[in-house]
C-alpha cells in the first residue's frame, strides 16, 4: 500500500461527556476517493470535521489521538490552522457560497492569504471553475451574485472555491444530499475528474453514490469503524454481518 496522505490513530472525540468517536484508525491514500457511510448520528461527519479541525469551533469538544497529514500531527499545538485548512479543504452539505459575486467567492481563499495580482487571480478563477465543471455555466456572469445560480451550480462554485486554494485533500460532507439527481450526477462526474489531482474523502448517505465513485469505503456505526475495505469488496462481499445488512438495505 502506498504511503497514506492522511491517517488517524486512536482518534477519540467527546461532546462534553458523550463519547462520539471510539478510537478511529483509518488511512486514506493519495488520489483516491474514500467514502464514509453509516446511519445518521454514527459519527462519520464528526470524524470528517476532525480532519481539518472544524470541531475546534464547537464548545465542549475534547479530542484525543492523532491525525497525521503528510506524517505531521495536525493536533500538535504548533499546527498553523490557517495553513491546515488551506491544505485540507471542505465542501459542506448545503451549498454555502457567500452572498458575493462568483468571482469574489472563488478568489476569497486567495485574497485572504494576500494574493492581489489581478491576472493571476483571473487565471485561478477560470482554472478552478473549469475543474469544478461549472465554468461554461457561469463564465458570462462571473460578477453576478453567486446566490442567483441554481443549487447544483452553487455547490460546484463552492467546490471551485475550495480548489482555488489548491488543497491536497478535499473533505466533502454529503455534498449532493441537497441537490436533485441531475446536479448530483454532474458533481459525481466532477469528483471522478478531480481525483487525478486531489485526494477526496466524502461522507454520503447515498450508498449507490458511494459504490459508483469511491475506491475505498468505511462503514461507521455508533462512533466506530465496522469495516474499511475496497468499495467493490464492501458492496459485494463484506466481511461483517452488520455491513452486509447495511449495504443491502436491511437497516439504516
Amino acid at each position: 500500500m502506498a504511503e497514506p496522505i492522511i491517517s488517524t490513530s486512536n482518534l477519540e472525540l467527546y461532546y462534553g461527556k458523550f463519547k462520539a468517536l471510539h478510537g478511529i484508525n483509518l488511512s486514506f491514500e493519495k488520489n483516491q476517493i474514500s467514502a464514509l457511510i453509516g446511519p445518521s448520528g454514527c459519527g462519520k461527519s464528526t470524524f470528517l470535521r476532525c480532519l481539518n479541525r472544524m470541531n475546534d469551533l464547537i464548545d465542549g469538544v475534547t479530542i484525543t489521538g492523532t491525525v497525521l497529514l503528510n506524517s505531521k500531527n495536525i493536533y500538535s499545538p504548533k499546527t498553523n490552522l490557517v495553513e491546515l485548512r488551506k491544505k485540507v479543504g471542505m465542501v459542506f452539505q448545503q451549498p454555502n457560497p457567500f452572498p458575493f459575486s462568483v468571482y469574489d467567492n472563488v478568489t476569497y481563499g486567495l485574497k485572504i492569504s494576500g494574493m492581489r495580482d489581478k491576472s493571476q487571480l483571473d487565471q485561478v478563477v477560470e482554472k478552478s471553475l473549469r475543474q469544478a465543471a461549472v465554468w461554461d455555466e457561469v463564465k458570462d456572469n462571473l460578477y453576478d451574485n453567486a446566490l442567483s445560480f441554481s443549487g447544483g451550480q452553487q455547490q460546484r462554485i463552492c467546490i471551485a472555491r475550495v480548489l482555488a486554494t489548491s488543497p491536497s485533500v478535499i473533505l466533502m460532507d454529503e455534498p449532493t444530499s441537497a441537490l436533485d439527481p441531475i446536479s448530483s450526477a454532474k458533481i459525481e462526474d466532477t469528483l471522478m475528474d478531480l481525483k487525478k489531482e486531489y485526494t477526496i474523502i466524502i461522507v454520503t448517505h447515498n450508498l449507490q453514490q458511494a459504490s459508483r465513485i469511491s475506491d475505498k469505503t468505511a462503514f461507521f456505526m455508533q462512533g466506530k469503524v465496522v469495516e474499511y475495505e475496497q468499495t467493490t469488496k464492501m458492496f459485494t462481499n463484506p466481511e461483517n454481518k452488520q455491513t452486509e445488512d447495511y449495504v443491502s438495505g436491511r437497516f439504516g
Partner: peptide, 27 residues
C-alpha cells in the same frame, strides 16, 4: 448572518478576524 458563512470562511483558511471583516460585515 448564517453560521454557514462563518464555517465556509474558516474552512477556507481565514482567521476569525478575516471572517468578521470580509464576510460577516460585508454580508
Amino acid at each position: 448572518v448564517p453560521t454557514f458563512y462563518h464555517q465556509a470562511s474558516l474552512a477556507l483558511g481565514a482567521t476569525q478576524w478575516q471572517t468578521i471583516w470580509k464576510v460577516v460585515l460585508r454580508a
